[in-house]
Simulated scan of single mutants.
Amino acid sequence: MFTIRPYRAEDVKDCSRCFYEDFFTCPIDGNDRGFLRDYVQILIEKCSFTYVAETSDHQVVGFICGIYDKKFHPKKSDFDRCKKHYGAWCRMFLKFYLGQYRLSEAFQKQLDDFLLQLREREEKYFDSCDLELAALSSGKDYRKGLGTVLVSKFMDRAEADRASTVRLLTNTLATWKFYEKRGFIKKAEKPFPDGSGRIRTENAYL
């Protein structure tokens, strides 16, 4: 049903749409979409590899990213790391902090909550790993087996690179159950201090 392949630069628009569908619920306008496109490009370029899932009519409906620990050296060559555009990184962050994206009020509110969770995620209170599942976005096809094929591809890559430990963070019980069925074990659990009542769960695949 889905074909999994390495990410290409022209996929960024579709990946930003998938990212929006997976993490946000509010309506968005053109300015919000522009920010999401820039943000997802930077997210993907930060990672060590990214795979996308596409349908038979070549529509990208999901993507998954992984990032190696700096001390870990994978067996295979890093041939599919996408080209870096550091100038674009700088322009994006400068534009964001100067408020030049002119984000809608509803999207700005959800984005602030999302970024707060990311800052929380950077706290070092769990063991190091070889490889981190840095982003999984499967859009509206999540319940149709898309999440399964994306994670399977990710774990195949981890095995090929001889990564013995993989970690990820989730913030919903449903997502945790998904990973638990695939061999992940819970290492720690901590509530977000943003008042949302959500729980951040850290997991490691051994």
Rank of each mutant, 00 (worst) to 15 (best):
L98G: 09
L173W: 03
M92L: 08
A163C: 06
A134V: 06
F2I: 14
Y7W: 09
P193T: 11
D78V: 00
V151K: 00
D127A: 07
I28Y: 05
C82L: 14
S196W: 05
S196P: 08
N31A: 11
K124F: 10
H73P: 00
K71S: 07
P193G: 05
L111F: 05
G197Y: 15
P191C: 11
E159P: 01
F23D: 01
G197D: 07
K186L: 14
E159K: 13
K71E: 14
E159L: 12
D29Q: 09
F107W: 04
I42T: 03
H58S: 08
C129T: 03
D161T: 02
L111K: 02
G197W: 15
R8V: 04
R200K: 09
Y205C: 03
L136V: 11
K140A: 08
D32H: 09
L168W: 00
K70Q: 08
K13Q: 09
H85G: 03
Y101R: 03
A88I: 10
R157N: 10
F192C: 12
R182V: 11
K109N: 10
K187W: 04
D130L: 01
R167Y: 11
S48H: 02
S196M: 12
E180M: 07
L94V: 07
H85M: 07
F24D: 15
R17G: 05
K70N: 10
N31C: 11
F192W: 05
C18Q: 09
K46D: 12
I42C: 04
K71L: 14
R182T: 10
A188C: 05
P193K: 13
N171F: 04
L146K: 02
S16M: 03
F126D: 12
E120C: 12
D113Q: 11
V60A: 15
F93W: 08
F63G: 00
E180R: 11
V151L: 13
D130F: 00
S16Y: 00
M155R: 04
T50Q: 00
F178S: 05
D80N: 13
